[in-house]
Structures are given as structure tokens and as C-alpha cells.
Computed example of a mutant assay.
Amino acid sequence: MQMPVLSVRRTAAALACAATLISLTACKGGTDAKDPASGPAPSHSAAANPVTVPNGAEKLSAAEIYAKGRETNAAAGSFREQMTRQGAKSDLLLSATECVGTVELSAKGSFEIIRKGNDVWAKPDAKLAEQLRNGTGFTISAGQWVHGAPDNPLMKSLDSWCHHEQFTDPDTLDAGTKVTKGKPTMVNGQQAVPVILASNGESVTWYTATTGKPYFVKQDSTRADMPDVVYSAFGKPVNAQAPSGQIEEAPTK
């Protein structure tokens, strides 16, 4: 099937990445699982925000709404990102330099991840450890924490699921991108305005809150191999902590 030409940096990247999950590198621009560092995943959601004062986001242009949502999320400093797409899902609490949560890659296995500054730890299950041995040559133990720097080839690939660029380099629409805005609607108990980018009969819709702070709260796609994402727990500290017990050092090649 012909891939639609979408002129949003990370939406296009998501399309390209869908066919290369075995590389373990996450698609940019975008989980139900547990937080390995601090127990069960946070239950906070956009609906829990008691602020209902209108922010006027729906009065902006479609491109301005999209930019405002991305900028407001980045300014929060941290949030929970729950992503699902065909063959993968993740549940992560993250910031520019921290990340805790779980990534599941369907039949390819799963892993828990912790990032704190210049340290990354990951714990693969047996399926993923086997995939790494057979597909990349990395030999690591199943069910055991592996440690490395963010620029280590293996750890860099796993840490890419944490999408730190959402804080350091918020996505923007290209000048030539044609987008439309819809009417405000309820999203997870909060009013939000949708912005739709469509091409070749397929589309991606982003929702920005119209009350309280104009957070970008949700992304919906019409293709199974593109991510659907829910954002919540804005400003909640990540509080990443190094795991305890035996820890291996990540292989370098």
C-alpha cells in the first residue's frame, strides 16, 4: 500500500518506522503497563485537572493550536505518555532527562526502562533478549537489568521510546502543511479542540485542551501502524531511581 505523504516531521517518521520494529528504535512523535521504578503506573489523567477556565485555544488557527499544544506540553517539564499501535504499546512517565515505564513489542518481547540523566537501565524479557541475540548480536541476560550511557548503541535504541525530544525540540508543522480544526469535543472528560491533518484518505487528529492550560492531550490515527497516544499527569515528577540488584553493563557492539 502506498504510504501517504504527510508533511509533519514525526508523523512521517512514524510511518517510516512502522516496518522496522525489529531495530527496537521507537518511531518519533509518540503505553498500559507498570512503572518499574515506583510501582504501578500513575493513574493521573487530563480529566483529573480541576481547572475548567476557558483558555481560548479553539479561537486560534489550526497550526497555532497544534503548536500551542506541543509548546505547553514541553513547558510542563514532564508527563505520562501512553502509546498504542499495531505491534507495540508503551506506558512511560518522562521528562527531558528521565524516563520510567514499560514497552511491549508484541511477539518480539518487552522491556522495562529507567533513564536518569546520563544513565539508562533496561530489563528485557526472554523474547526480547533472544531477538537481540539473533537480530543484532547483542548478548544480554533475560529478566536482568542492563546499564549503559544514552549514546551506547543498544541503550540509545531502547531509550528512543522515551521521546525526550518532545521537551527539547517540540514538533512543529511545516509551513506548507494543510490542516483543519474541528469543533471542540470531550476527550477523556476534558473539552479539547481537534486539529486534523489528512492525506490520501487517511488522517491524524491531535487534541488540545480548551480549558485550563492548553495541553496536547491525545493523538488519534486512522492507520493501525501509526501511533495513538494519550498524554496526562502533566508536571508530575518522574523521580527515576537506579534499580537494585545485579546489573550488567551493556555491550558496545
Rank of each mutant, 00 (worst) to 15 (best):
A62W: 00
A63F: 05
Y66W: 12
A67R: 14
A67W: 04
K68W: 04
K68F: 02
A74T: 08
A74S: 14
A75D: 14
A76T: 13
G77K: 04
G77E: 10
S78F: 09
S78T: 11
F79S: 08
F79A: 07
E81L: 13
Q82G: 08
M83S: 05
M83N: 01
T84R: 14
Q86C: 01
Q86I: 01
G87P: 04
G87A: 07
A88I: 03
A88T: 10
A88S: 13
K89Q: 14
S90V: 02
L93N: 01
L94Y: 02
S95I: 09
S95T: 11
S95G: 12
S95H: 10
T97Q: 13
T97E: 13
E98L: 05
C99Y: 05
G101K: 01
G101D: 00
T102W: 04
V103F: 04
E104N: 14
L105C: 03
S106A: 15
A107H: 11
K108E: 11
K108F: 14
K108N: 13
F111M: 03
E112D: 15
E112Y: 06
I113C: 02
I114H: 07
I114R: 09
I114F: 08
R115E: 13
R115W: 03
K116L: 12
K116Q: 15
G117A: 08
G117W: 07
D119I: 07
V120H: 00
W121A: 00
A122H: 00
K123N: 14
D125Q: 08
D125W: 10
D125N: 15
A126E: 14
K127A: 15
L128P: 08
L128A: 07
L128N: 07
Q131A: 11
Q131H: 09
Q131F: 03
Q131Y: 01
L132K: 04
L132W: 05
L132I: 10
R133D: 10
R133Q: 13
R133V: 01
N134Q: 15
N134P: 00
N134F: 06
N134E: 13
G135P: 05
T136L: 06
T136G: 04
F138K: 00
F138Y: 15
F138Q: 00
T139K: 13
I140Y: 09
S141A: 15
A142I: 13
A142K: 12
G143H: 11
Q144C: 03
Q144S: 07
V146N: 03
G148C: 10
P150Y: 01
N152C: 09
N152Q: 11
N152Y: 11
M155F: 02
M155V: 01
M155H: 00
K156F: 02
K156N: 13
K156I: 00
D159F: 02
D159T: 09
S160T: 12
W161Y: 08
W161S: 10
W161F: 08
W161A: 12
C162N: 06
C162I: 07
H163V: 09
H164P: 01
H164N: 12
E165F: 04
E165I: 06
E165M: 05
Q166V: 11
Q166R: 13
T168N: 09
T168C: 03
D169I: 01
P170H: 12
P170R: 12
P170V: 10
T172Q: 15
L173W: 10
L173N: 05
D174K: 13
D174N: 14
A175C: 02
G176E: 12
G176H: 10
T177P: 04
T177A: 15
T177K: 07
K178N: 12
T180I: 11
K181S: 08
G182N: 07
K183F: 03
T185E: 15
M186G: 03
M186F: 03
